[in-house]
């Protein structure tokens, strides 16, 4: 009834005591593990702001009960850059102004990383748009998002955090 789960969270092993099976992965990250980069936009799988990678696949963390995740490998936005080297998707988002308020951005970026790993869209803009349609952006930075995902798909070298700013 009080499962303890063991996670690999952004590359580090972590044992998490769960006193409540109702806790979602999203709320676990935000409220209990001090990783608030993952955002809550709807809490019902209707916006994609909470997207993280679980075992390398993009999923909505708001609909994932933490208790189910024993042994899982989880990557959040905080774990994407390698030190000061931004992930190519992160760098491409800055270059293409693929966000405005930045709230949906962690989810967009994790979704883009997942999409590129799925290798289904390639550089086809129409398929990128479809592949990114599970992430709503109310500022409507879609134009930049689409271009950023294409750029990152083409592959670009890591960019230093300082360079990108």
């Amino acid at each position: 009834m009080s499962p303890s789960i063991s996670l690999t969270l952004n590359g580090a092993k972590r044992d998490v005591a769960l006193d409540d099976p109702r806790v979602t992965l999203l709320d676990l990250l935000r409220e209990r593990l001090a990783l608030p980069g993952t955002k809550k936009g709807c809490d019902r799988g209707q916006c994609g702001a909470c997207t993280v990678l679980v075992n390398g696949r993009r999923v909505n963390s708001c609909l994932t009960l933490a208790a189910t995740l024993d042994g899982a490998e989880i990557t959040t936005i905080e774990g994407l850059a390698a030190g000061d080297d931004l992930h190519p998707v992160q760098a491409a988002f800055i270059e293409n102004d693929a966000f405005q308020c930045g709230y949906c951005t962690p989810g967009q970026i994790m979704s883009a990383v997942g999409l590129i790993a799925e290798d289904r869209a390639g550089e086809d803009l129409e398929r990128i748009r479809e592949g990114m349609s599970g992430n709503i952006c109310r500022c409507a930075a879609y134009h930049g998002i689409t271009l950023a995902v294409r750029q990152a798909t083409r592959g670009s070298a890591g960019i230093k955090k300082d360079d990108a700013a």
Partner: peptide, 21 residues
């Protein structure tokens, strides 16, 4: 110019209200 808050926003370190605990 690219956004000065760009790195914070793409790395999840930009702190929105409910990120405070």
């Amino acid at each position: 110019a690219t956004r000065r808050d760009g790195v914070a926003k793409v790395t999840g370190t930009a702190t929105f209200a409910a990120d405070n605990t």
